[in-house]
Design a binder for these strands. Sequence first.
DNA 1: CTGCCACTTCAAGCCGACTTGAGGTCAAGC
DNA 2: GCTTGACCTCAAGTCGGCTTGAAGTGGCAG
Lengths: 148, 148
Amino acid sequence: MRELDIAEVAQRSGLAASTLRYYEEKGLIASIGRHGLRRVFGAEVLDRLALVALGRAAGFSLEEMARMFAPDGRPRIDRGALAGKADELDRTIRRLGAVSRGLRHAAACKAPSHMECPTFRRILKAAAAGALEETRQAKTPRPRRVPA
Amino acid sequence: MRELDIAEVAQRSGLAASTLRYYEEKGLIASIGRHGLRRVFGAEVLDRLALVALGRAAGFSLEEMARMFAPDGRPRIDRGALAGKADELDRTIRRLGAVSRGLRHAAACKAPSHMECPTFRRILKAAAAGALEETRQAKTPRPRRVPA
DNA sequence: CTGCCACTTCAAGCCGACTTGAGGTCAAGC
DNA sequence: GCTTGACCTCAAGTCGGCTTGAAGTGGCAG
């Protein structure tokens, strides 16, 4: 099995080396050893990182994920939690669809003030209602500051 | 026109009074005056707040929104920016759809290790790719800590 | 053998959107 | 007129997910 150096994992995963160290500290990934001071990773870490990416995209926190696959090595994930997250995502998707329609309407509608447009007011009301929900959600990672 | 006290605006909008003060500081809303020390709001602040909620749901930052309707009173929003945000949202929606399907698959699939399932690996790859995108996204506000 | 430089650790900083706390003011009800 | 408590200000804290910086280590090319 290929042994990877942190820079290689970084390059292949698109994550910064500092992020990988951080993930290791949080128990999301593990190196298979050291070469001197330097971490040595097995190729399977890339699968793990893909899994982490999926989890992040789904809105799991690093902590939650660490708990999910901390026990032994293999994921051992609570299927119910996954289905729950999926339901949550689907709700979010519907909400975002409404928001998107709202934006498009606002962009297209020629009314002098949107506030006078009943369609817009209706959408607005829905967004206001949605914003009160406590559904914590899926944010894509902030743009990587790519080192020069 | 009804004059509203901050507690009333808070109650009607579902936001904390501290949030309203914060929004005012950021230029997102304005009070129509003071009664002694106390802010007095006009009823239109509620429309404004609904607009802010829509914007937040769409993934605009408070700063962006402040710039959007800072000028005079009326929104005066860049329609292109709205359409752009809508496009971004639609992309996010598609991505989240994929993530949701991935989760459901992981929840249902009986394979001992998901890593051996080609379907899952494909979805994973997509999520990994998506996670690298720089599309900053729509997070629903964190659960309000409702004061006892 | 030497020097370079990619790696290491650890603590501190950053971002956005708020919340919290201390200490102060003042309109209104008794 | 006094008390009450809802409001005020301002500074600092919180949270998650990293990044940054200083200071150190050590593998390997020359």
